[in-house]
Simulated scan of single mutants.
Amino acid sequence: MTHEPHRIDARGMKCPWPALRVARAMRSHAAVAIVADDPVAERELRALADQHGWTFAVRGEATYLLGRSD
C-alpha cells in the first residue's frame, strides 16, 4: 500500500514560512508535497532536506516533494 504525501499549499508565503511548514509536517508524515512560489523556496527546501537527510525532488513548477529516505 502506498501512502500519499501530505500536501501543503504555501503559495504567497515568503520564506522561511514554507520551510517551517514542511519541517512541522515532517514530524508526523513520511513525505510532504509542497507548492511554494517564493523565488527562494527551492533553495530553502533543498537545504532543509539536506540538513535532515530527507530526499528532495522538484515535481513541477513551484512544486516540491520531500521525504524520509528510511
Rank of each mutant, 00 (worst) to 15 (best):
A41P: 04
A30Q: 13
Q51A: 12
E42P: 01
I34F: 09
L48D: 02
R11V: 04
A23P: 01
A30V: 06
A19S: 14
D70K: 02
P16D: 02
G12C: 08
P18E: 04
E61D: 11
T55F: 00
T55R: 08
V35M: 08
G12M: 02
A30N: 05
S69R: 03
A31S: 08
L66F: 03
P5I: 05
R27V: 15
P18F: 11
D70W: 10
M1T: 13
E44T: 12
M13R: 11
R43L: 11
F56Q: 04
K14P: 09
R21K: 15
A23D: 10
G53Q: 03
Q51V: 09
A57P: 06
R59S: 12
P16K: 03
P39D: 00
A31T: 04
E44M: 14
W17Y: 14
D38I: 05
R21Q: 12
I8N: 00
W17H: 13
A41D: 01
R7H: 13
V22Y: 02
P39Y: 03
H3S: 13
G67C: 09
H52G: 02
P39W: 00
D38M: 03
H29R: 07
D38R: 06
R46K: 10
R24A: 15
E61H: 15
R59C: 11
V22G: 05
R27N: 13
A41G: 07
W54N: 00
A62G: 12
T2L: 10
H52M: 03
D38C: 06
A31W: 00
E44W: 10
H52V: 08
A10S: 10
L48Q: 00
P5S: 11
A36F: 04
R43S: 11
T63Y: 03
